[in-house]
Amino acid sequence: MSTRASRLAGDRLLQTMSILVLALSLVALAALLYDIWSDGWYRLDWQFITSLPSRRAASAGIYPALVGSLYVLLVTAVLAVPLGIGAAVYLEEYGGGGRFARLIEINIANLAGVPSIIYGLLGLSLFVRAFQMGPSVLAGGSTLALLALPVVILSTREALRTVPMSAREGSYALGATQWQTIWHQVLPSALPGILTGLILAMSRAIGETAPLITIGALAYLDFAPSGLMSPFTVLPIQIYNWVSLPQPAFAENAAAGIIVLLVLLLTLNAVAVVLRDRFQKARQ
């Protein structure tokens, strides 16, 4: 009897602690958002979005950085998504459990933990110098694609594993080839999980500063990037630049820049969530 009571007490204790931990992290997040919002909201206007950088805090804007972030993210997604999903499909559906596949798997898991500056150095010597891309949008997007790939591959594999074997076997029994099975059965069922992974990977990529500074992303541009080979800057670099200036007014610009970055991030995530829900509904 007493053991049952103590087990129940332990149960309640753990539950309370979990709620506390959750509340703590939410409060921290809320405090952060409130702080940023109260510092930066009144700097947020159309002029701020569409202006070029300036030494006067009041007339400085984020236009080149915002467009740069969108361009780089687009290149990252175009490169990382098909490659990542393709690699995961190979490892999960074709690769079998061989020693080679396991070796690749371990390496990918390790790559997911490599500090981002290392990817910057790789990007500098590979894309910027060896491939002669220069410090361009293409080089920046490619570098971030390398950074995002392990996350995309790992989460896609997890999603593919949740598809029950019976779905594949049913498909084979009806005469479908392996590719037809993957394309018509496995991928659609796994899509919600894959999209979640993509959200995580793209969210990481959009906030990166270090690897892009390493490959030569700029801090002052008086034009928005106009193509793949254009020089560029991104929102986190512009924010970093403002935060490190001595004039306090630039801290408010930085806060406003952070709000723009958050809105951009949330918009992208919202799109992915909407897509995910629609696919889920369509499957049911």
Partner: peptide, 16 residues
């Protein structure tokens, strides 16, 4: 560079 972009001579400038 910011002031230069207001002149007639203006050419695009990038600073890292």
């Amino acid at each position: 560079a910011e002031e230069f972009r207001g002149t007639n001579a203006a050419a695009p400038v990038t600073v890292g």
